[in-house]
Design a protein around this nucleic acid. Structure first.
Lengths: 234, 234
DNA sequence: ACAAAAGTGTTCCGATTACACCCATGT
DNA sequence: ACATGGGTGTAATCGGAACACTTTTGT
């Protein structure tokens, strides 16, 4: 007996990664010149196909490992782009994967010919196909999630200062925050552990380093925060 | 010249819909007995394959139209389940689609042999494969989104009373709410328009009907609300 | 000594909560 | 007239915003 499945049209399934980093000053995004046709040589997101024995997450992890050298980084499915006309010739459905990495851990030029490059989020080149749309969606997602969850730590080194963290929030939301209130709010979460060491680069006085309390972080990730603005509805 | 695409493994792409409804008392979910092998006769979500010229959204709309008779309903991609081992024999990647419908508009028994049935969210049968997981994720998603966005209106008729709406919130969050505070909050959004008519079924005094101000609803959908609990983090 | 950034403390205000009270009506 | 649920009002409380003030240290 024939299976119902044999009537179905198979299609190609890919992933594209929107990878954010923070260099201490600006929010950055990783892009790469495509190494193959079509669109060879143009800027695109880091991507690849989902292989036979891979899930989306497996494929994204593999691509990230290959192109950045990083493992175990924060990632999540964002949105699947499945418009049959999105790629001209072949039908490809692609899952946009949202990823946050500590930019300091990123190893440069692992790849030989084509290697990824960091762009300031405000100075991105044009990206192929619908990758610009993916980036815009990812920026929104970053703002949305970071307002509710302790997410931005993923972009910082394991040791960081409160002013550094504040600067990151200010970058993400393109705003300025009151340091007093920021301090109170961020410390009131109980997610940070103060270290004895100080960072002396940013100021004369120096700012204490903190690290994330991993236990509480993992346990409380789902809790709602609300760093940026109060809930209001016009 | 050979395309890079010809090396890739094609796969089958499907959708499964998690469809919520509210009968005025309980939160409900639509399920159907599968009409084909494998798992024929078992309870499952409403689903189907993504056809050649369809996006995920197209396919979901088609399946919903076929099985419920409804068009133009609220839906969104929720999550793609892509574990290569999720279905035993054939590899199928499936997009779980989250949908909210006005249960009163639902037409019964459009389909002949196998027709969908509503289950109370707390008394669901076991569903095939990973559909239980999808439902749990959808319940969480509903709570999450409805706490921040004016989403639950989608589950009510175009005319509804504030007590009805409150009851819906209480169902979704399995809690009780203070009617005074609920009134103030919901009306302060400016999203509701009071009608002259009253519903006399629920009480002797009768409760005024309201409708959604569609303009403001569409404009302000993204605004954060926070109906249910204040942002707290332990 | 002073500039500059870190960090703390205080006041004010608006939003939320809890709860009391009034209203309309079918029986 | 009274029970029932709809609807409004209010005092107490909490949390966030604004901003002043203190601390530390390199020059």
């Amino acid at each position: 007996m024939r299976s119902i499945y044999s009537d179905q049209t198979p299609l190609l399934f890919a992933i594209d990664c929107i990878i954010f980093g923070f260099d201490g000053d600006q929010l950055k995004l990783l892009a790469i010149r495509r190494g193959f046709e079509p669109y060879k040589g143009e800027w695109s997101l880091l991507g690849g196909f989902v292989n036979k024995n891979e899930s989306i997450e497996d494929a994204a992890a593999r691509v990230l490992k290959d192109l950045t050298g990083l493992e175990g980084i924060y990632m999540e499915q964002m949105h699947v782009f499945s418009d049959p006309k999105r790629e001209a010739k072949t039908r490809i459905v692609t899952a946009a994967v949202f990823a946050l990495i500590d930019i300091n851990k990123y190893e440069k030029q692992i790849h030989k010919e084509y290697h990824p490059e960091w762009f300031s989020i405000n100075e991105l080149p044009n990206l192929i196909v619908d990758h610009d749309e993916m980036v815009n969606m990812a920026k929104e997602r970053l703002r949305y999630k970071a307002a509710l969850h302790p997410l931005l730590f993923e972009l910082l080194p394991s040791k960081f200062t409160i002013p550094q963290l504040q600067h990151l929030y200010e970058e993400v939301y393109n705003t300025t925050l009151d340091k007093g209130n920021f301090n109170k709010k961020i410390l009131s979460t109980g997610l940070l552990v103060k270290l004895k060491e100080k960072d002396k680069l940013g100021s004369k006085k120096g700012a204490f380093y903190y690290k994330v309390d991993v236990k509480k972080y993992n346990a409380g990730f789902k809790s709602f925060l609300n760093f940026v603005h109060k809930p209001t509805l016009k």
